[in-house]
Amino acid sequence: MKAGFAVGAGVLLASVLVLGWAQNRPSSTALDLVSMLAQSVMVGAVWIGYAVYVKRATRPGLVVWLRRFRPDQGDRIRFHRALGTACFGFASAVTLQDPSFNTSLVSAGYRVWFLAPVLCVLWVVGLFALALLMYAAGTMNEGLFVFGILFWTALFVWGATELLRRRGVLSRQLSPEQTAVHLDAVRRGERRVGEGVEVIKVMESAGSERWKGAVAQALDRADLAVVDVSDVTPQIEWELREVFRRLWPKRILLVAQDDKARADVLSAQLRAMGVRDATVPWVQESLLPYPAAQAAWPKTNAQYADLVRRLRRAVAERVGQ
């Protein structure tokens, strides 16, 4: 955190000094470009500082999050938000893509941090172009100009968000060997995810079960498996068997919605699947309940802070520092 803050503050200070120097010089095209670049870098200082923070705070380790796929999240709590934050500093979290959670803007933000100044320059250039067009057309109306600024800013934000969405999902159209190399890099901390969950998209063909191979590869390298057992579907049953076959029980964390987090019921389900280690005491110790619905504002932040705190403690106990 200190390194990221120091770099961000340093970049901001340097940009301010360059901007002040340029403004005290006779106007020229070159100085105008320098001023524009300084302003853009100044705006991107936070992003740059965050990239340094992620790089310094990333630790080797891999957490695999498994859960039922849903068509949409609705009013459900965004569990991935809490999980990514809780794992940060202990390990990198990954999951498979599904319709309700198909991208990670947080991890995408780290991947394209170097584009922050460029994006800011494009925004400023767009404003200059808007002013020049209105001046050339002879329609320099203040109200129209403000509307143009708002329209361009909204369009720019939409474009930047789309860029992050495209970079927030990792499309794995690779061979099993190449996928294994990638997961190994994540586990060693060479591929940084940030305070988010990396989304791996498994390209399926009709009747394909390639996702099982992706799950198996991830579990073989996992330091911790987080399995949501709120709804135990046939797919979740298969994943649970693989989790217990490939990982020690102390490397498994079960999570479930509050109203479905009954240790005796889950223990009976797991033992009926052939998981002998899933005794009631073990399930009680390894089960972390979470709220089913997202709290209304302003209680949302407190709800997520509590969930992050409990998750972080559970992850620390199983992955270690």
Results as ranks from 00 to 15, higher is better:
residue 4 G to V: 10
residue 4 G to T: 08
residue 8 G to K: 07
residue 11 V to F: 07
residue 12 L to F: 15
residue 12 L to A: 15
residue 15 S to H: 04
residue 15 S to V: 07
residue 17 L to P: 06
residue 17 L to N: 04
residue 19 L to T: 02
residue 20 G to P: 05
residue 20 G to W: 14
residue 21 W to P: 08
residue 23 Q to W: 14
residue 24 N to K: 14
residue 26 P to F: 09
residue 27 S to N: 09
residue 33 L to N: 10
residue 33 L to H: 10
residue 35 S to I: 02
residue 37 L to R: 00
residue 44 G to D: 00
residue 49 G to Q: 10
residue 55 K to P: 00
residue 57 A to N: 10
residue 57 A to W: 11
residue 58 T to R: 04
residue 59 R to H: 13
residue 61 G to K: 00
residue 61 G to C: 05
residue 65 W to R: 10
residue 67 R to C: 03
residue 69 F to L: 04
residue 70 R to M: 13
residue 72 D to S: 14
residue 74 G to H: 10
residue 76 R to P: 02
residue 84 G to Q: 01
residue 89 G to D: 05
residue 95 T to N: 05
residue 97 Q to S: 15
residue 98 D to V: 03
residue 98 D to E: 15
residue 99 P to E: 09
residue 102 N to Y: 14
residue 104 S to Y: 03
residue 105 L to N: 08
residue 106 V to F: 00
residue 107 S to P: 01
residue 113 W to Y: 15
residue 119 L to I: 05
residue 120 C to K: 07
residue 122 L to I: 10
residue 124 V to D: 06
residue 126 G to I: 00
residue 128 F to A: 12
residue 130 L to E: 05
residue 133 L to A: 15
residue 133 L to V: 14
residue 138 G to Y: 08
residue 143 G to Y: 13
residue 143 G to I: 05
residue 145 F to C: 07
residue 146 V to H: 12
residue 150 L to H: 08
residue 158 W to C: 06
residue 158 W to G: 04
residue 162 E to T: 07
residue 163 L to P: 00
residue 163 L to K: 00
residue 165 R to E: 15
residue 167 R to V: 04
residue 171 S to V: 14
residue 175 S to T: 15
residue 178 Q to W: 00
residue 181 V to M: 06
residue 184 D to Q: 14
residue 189 G to I: 03
residue 190 E to I: 00
residue 193 V to Q: 05
residue 193 V to R: 05
residue 195 E to R: 15
residue 195 E to H: 08
residue 196 G to T: 05
residue 197 V to Y: 07
residue 198 E to S: 09
residue 200 I to S: 03
residue 204 E to P: 01
residue 204 E to H: 09
residue 204 E to V: 03
residue 205 S to H: 12
residue 213 G to C: 00
residue 214 A to H: 14
residue 217 Q to D: 12
residue 219 L to Y: 09
residue 221 R to P: 03
residue 222 A to N: 08
residue 223 D to A: 04
residue 223 D to Q: 11
residue 224 L to K: 06
residue 226 V to Y: 05
residue 229 V to C: 02
residue 230 S to E: 09
residue 232 V to T: 11
residue 233 T to F: 08
residue 233 T to E: 06
residue 233 T to D: 10
residue 233 T to V: 03
residue 236 I to S: 06
residue 238 W to T: 01
residue 241 R to E: 12
residue 242 E to T: 10
residue 244 F to I: 01
residue 249 P to W: 07
residue 252 I to Y: 09
residue 253 L to W: 03
residue 254 L to Q: 01
residue 254 L to A: 04
residue 256 A to I: 00
residue 268 A to Q: 13
residue 269 Q to I: 11
residue 270 L to I: 02
residue 271 R to S: 04
residue 274 G to W: 10
residue 275 V to T: 03
residue 275 V to S: 03
residue 282 W to D: 02
residue 282 W to G: 01
residue 283 V to L: 01
residue 284 Q to S: 12
residue 288 L to V: 13
residue 290 Y to R: 03
residue 296 A to H: 09
residue 298 P to M: 02
residue 298 P to S: 04
residue 300 T to F: 11
residue 302 A to M: 06
residue 305 A to F: 02
residue 308 V to C: 04
residue 312 R to W: 03
residue 313 R to H: 07
residue 316 A to G: 09
residue 320 G to Q: 08
residue 321 Q to L: 13
residue 321 Q to F: 14
residue 321 Q to T: 10
